[in-house]
Design a protein around this nucleic acid. Structure first.
Length: 262
DNA sequence: AAGCGAGCCAACCGCCCATAG
DNA sequence: ACTATGGGCGGTTGGCTCGCT
């Protein structure tokens, strides 16, 4: 007995997103925020599943998505993190501002895996209930990577089984807390993914859904998270969305974010 | 130039978890 | 306590691009 599907799939569009759909989704989120992903496609005039919209926004349209090749440094860090966390791509992605879990996952599956294989390096998470004894077998080690539990120590102050809201303490081999250095990055990542909810808060508090929402929401967003949006991030994002925003909307956004005005 | 295969990446699927009612 | 619902996550797939033959 599985769950019911998240939406009626009949009549829904699938596959690659068109520019027009991107435009609709971006405009809708900028103007209205996200109350409920299930309702977003309908209200935005999209024939898409809510999940599909969410994915598109998170992986492609949101402001702080960092595009471009993953650097050697990032790759090394991914390998290190993967050895500790296993296939917890969302957790790994928290350490890379602007990178999505999907991107990191793809990079791992396509490049790093191959690289490690070529180098004859079997790679698997450490300290995984000693399941990974056959680390010389590439396939098995890959499977181990997904099966083994990562070296995460649940923060004793958090409620057990709290899922994605858990906080984790990463430890190195010496048992030292490794998480402190990444707190800033975590904030940056969260600021991006929470942008829509901030917009929502502003929308709720202002009680309107007019064009001015973008402005008021942006003010809140700016106050809360301004330091986390670099000029470069914003510039890149503007470049991607301005194709389907009006001149006024572009200007409005720039005003809202106060780009380059420190 | 055409065919083919590998690589890459966006998107989908199904499951799990948190939470509201 | 139980159920329904929505969000999030990891695994997988499909299609496009590019290089090689």
């Amino acid at each position: 007995m599985g769950r019911q599907p998240c939406c009626e799939k009949i009549g829904l569009k699938r596959g690659a997103w068109t520019l027009e759909e991107d435009q609709k989704l971006t405009n809708f989120i900028l103007n209205n925020g996200i109350q409920c992903w299930r309702h977003v496609p309908k209200r935005a005039g999209l024939k898409r599943c809510g999940k599909s919209c969410r994915l598109r926004w998170i992986n492609y349209l949101r402001p702080d998505v960092k595009r471009g090749a993953i650097s050697e440094e990032e790759e090394d860090q991914i390998i290190q993190l993967h050895s500790r966390l296993g296939n917890r791509w969302s957790k790994i992605a928290l350490h890379f501002p602007g990178r999505t879990d999907n991107e990191i996952k793809n990079h791992w599956n396509c490049k790093i895996k191959k690289k490690l294989r070529l180098n004859g390096l079997a790679h698997g998470p450490k300290n995984n209930h000693d399941e990974g004894t056959d680390l010389n077998s590439t396939n098995s080690s890959e499977q181990q990577a997904s099966k083994c539990s990562p070296k995460e120590v649940q923060n004793s102050t958090t409620t057990p089984n709290s899922g994605s809201k858990q906080s984790y303490i990463l430890q190195n081999e010496n048992g030292n807390d490794m998480s402190c250095g990444s707190s800033l990055n975590d904030n940056i990542i969260r600021s991006g993914s929470d942008a829509a909810s901030i917009i929502l808060q502003a929308d709720d508090s202002s009680g309107n859904s007019s064009g001015s929402t973008t402005f008021s929401a942006g003010m809140v967003l700016e106050e809360e998270y301004r330091c986390n949006f670099s000029e470069e991030d914003f510039g890149n994002w503007m470049e991607s969305v301005e194709a389907f925003l009006s001149w006024d909307e572009c200007n409005n956004l720039e005003d809202v974010f106060n780009v380059g005005d420190d």
